[in-house]
Amino acid sequence: MNGVPMAHGLVLAAVLFTLGLAGLMFRRNMIFMLLSLEIMLNAAGLAFIVAGMAWDQAEGQAMFLLVITLAAAEASVGLALLNQLYRRFKTLDIDTASGMRG
């Protein structure tokens, strides 16, 4: 065998993305939801790298750089929200923040 078929890399990205999506749907703790979001973003970055390497173009890695920046921005805002949730409700259960106060 010589080289990795592009389909295998994309299958790995799809599996990781689906695992992250399942985790996002069935967890109620906000930490685990943020971790699942990170998994999904990482899987998207993996798909970019696989596609970029299959066509021997550097754009895939450049796009991965942008995905990683987006993940950093999302993580910082999400962790600030998590901190605020814990301070106000003393719990990380996302359902406690389901009501609005107008």
Binding site: N2, G3, V4, P5, M6, A7, G9, L10, V11, A14, V15, F17, T18, L19, L21, A22, M25, V50, M53, A54, W55
Partner: peptide
């Protein structure tokens, strides 16, 4: 639901033009 989505993704991959080797 996620497994169904994975099946759809894999089926789409199989029909796509991705015969390249890295």
């Amino acid at each position: 639901l996620a497994a169904l989505l994975l099946v759809v993704l894999l089926a789409t991959l199989q029909h796509g033009d991705i015969g390249r080797v890295i």
